[in-house]
Each structure stands twice: as C-alpha cells, then as structure tokens.
Design a protein around this nucleic acid. Sequence first.
DNA 1: CTAGATTAGTTGGTGTACAAATTAATAGCC
DNA 2: GGCTATTAATTTGTACACCAACTAATCTAG
Lengths: 155, 155
Amino acid sequence: MESVTDTTDLLALDRQVCFALSIASRSVIGLYRPLLQPMGLTHPQYLVMLALWQHEPLSVKELGELLRLDPGTLSPLLKRLQALGYLSRERNTKDERALAVTLTPAGRALRAEAEKIPPAIVERLGMELAELQHLHGALMRVIAATDRDPGSRKV
Amino acid sequence: MESVTDTTDLLALDRQVCFALSIASRSVIGLYRPLLQPMGLTHPQYLVMLALWQHEPLSVKELGELLRLDPGTLSPLLKRLQALGYLSRERNTKDERALAVTLTPAGRALRAEAEKIPPAIVERLGMELAELQHLHGALMRVIAATDRDPGSRKV
DNA sequence: CTAGATTAGTTGGTGTACAAATTAATAGCC
DNA sequence: GGCTATTAATTTGTACACCAACTAATCTAG
C-alpha cells in the first residue's frame, strides 16, 4: 500500500494498511462479543441499536446511511432484532415504501446496560483515551478519503 | 468507547472507535474490489495470496496465525483458491495432519499483477504516505492492545 | 394525466468470520 | 508400548456484507 523502491516489501502482509484495518476491526469487535452476548446482541446489531437510541425513528434507508450498510444486510438484521423484541418496523404513513423503525420499551431499556460497554472496552484495551481519540481521528480521515474516491460511495 | 461525563455522548455512534474501525476497514477494502476482480480474487483471498507469495509453503495453521483467521474460514477459502488454479494443498509428509499449501505457477505469476495494486490504492486514497504510515502504526498498537487482553487470543 | 424512471425494502446468491462438532493423526505420560 | 490428551483440518450452523433481481410505491417529464 506504500510505493517504495523495493517491490518485495510492497506486498509484505504486515505493510498493508488494509490488512491492519481488517485485523484491528475484527480484534476490537472480538472484545465486544462477550459483553454483548448477555444482551443477545451481535456487534452489528449493537451498532443498529446505537443508531436507534440516538435517532429513532429511522427508516431502513437512514439506518443504511448512518451505518454504511445496504438494505440487503439490514433487512434480515432488523428482522432478527424485531424477533428479539427490541424494535418494531412499521410502514411510514407518508410514504408507504418506507419503514419507520422504532424501539420497543425493552429496546429502550437495553440502553442502560449498553452504557457500561464502552468504558469496559477502554479498560480492556488498556490504552490511553488520547491515543484512542487520535486513532479515531485517523480513521475518520481515511473514511473521508474513501468517500472522496470517484469510484466509491454510490449514495 | 471513551469514558466521559455525558452519557448521551458515550454511545454516540460516531464516537465509537469500533464503528470507525469497521467502516474504515470496509471502505478501504471496497477500493480493492474492482482491482481484484479481474484476477478473480476477493480481498480475503488476496491476503492469503500475499502470505503465500511471501512465505510459501505454509500450513493452514500458519496461514491462520499470519492472517488471524480460523481454520473454519480458511478451509473453504483455500479450496476456492485451489479451484481457481492458484494454489495446491498437499499432506505434509512429516505430519499428516498438516497441509502444505503451495502456489501453482499461475499463482506465482499473479504476483506481477498484484504489485500494481498497493500504489493504485494509495493513489485512489489521495492521502500522504506519511499519514498512512501513521495510521498503520496506530492500528498496530490497537491490535497489540487487543492481544494483551487476557480474555482474547486463544493461540 | 399518464407512462416511464426512480426509489424503498425484500429476497436470493455468494463468500466470508466465528463457533462448535467431528475425524484422523500425533504427542505425551505411565 | 499403549492409552489418553492434544492437535490439524474439515464440516456444519449462524450471522453478516455485498451484489443482483424483484415488487410495490412514488416521482418526474411530456
């Protein structure tokens, strides 16, 4: 991922930012798993809940935009969350193509448990907050860079 | 993911490093897709090829350690790469439980095309190399932090 | 107003990741 | 040496992500 003189190095696995991103993402998400399991949530489901706690009601389209997930992924995911009793999906009266995704009382109540998670993760990582914020900033910049790429983000 | 006074902020989606990691990873990997598609490779397959170009022969276990993937994921993935004609899997004569994964001539030849990819990605991102290297370092540190967590990494 | 284009969400297909179970081979201990 | 524990890889099951196709609702242009 870096242009260098030595092509042997060019493809070295541990030089690939894409690889580091993938491993980092999977590794951090792995830390969440034991914490989310008692709530019956997978990590992507947790992100959906975060979005709804913050912004409900949301359409599938809005959720997709917030979470960068396509409707094909969200549809069954929301279905499973509905089956868990955490949310409901109803037709939007103004535009019947759209759904209004809202939390159930159980879904809203779950937030109190969920608030314990981020601090627990920070503690498990044992990293300074400043370093995590720094990483966050760097990640936002690379996301913005991918957004700027002409071949990406069909919105 | 940061302990702060305001709990409303605590769960804000755009404050979660795990979310930024996930989106960044997916977004960057998305840039690879059109470049890998002419070679018939998915991104995880590309990473496997990187590992083999660098280190072949490798056992499934070694590939798993390098790529942080479990055998359940690798097994069908390698099978598909074998079907594509890029690698072969043979029993290790010293320990018949283990496989020796080696590249075919076609697999080795693919490297020349693959070398064009990292510079192309850097160009598409339009980011400074130094910034990418900085991000890479930060990612390595968070990966190391997850490795240090007592509840993680059963190796 | 109407027909065609666009949009919202669902469904189906493919390829991962993760977890558990299984089979066969090897290691280690008595 | 033999038995038990451990290990390597495969298979099965579940939940994603991404992509394409489809249906129904809405928008837009003539």
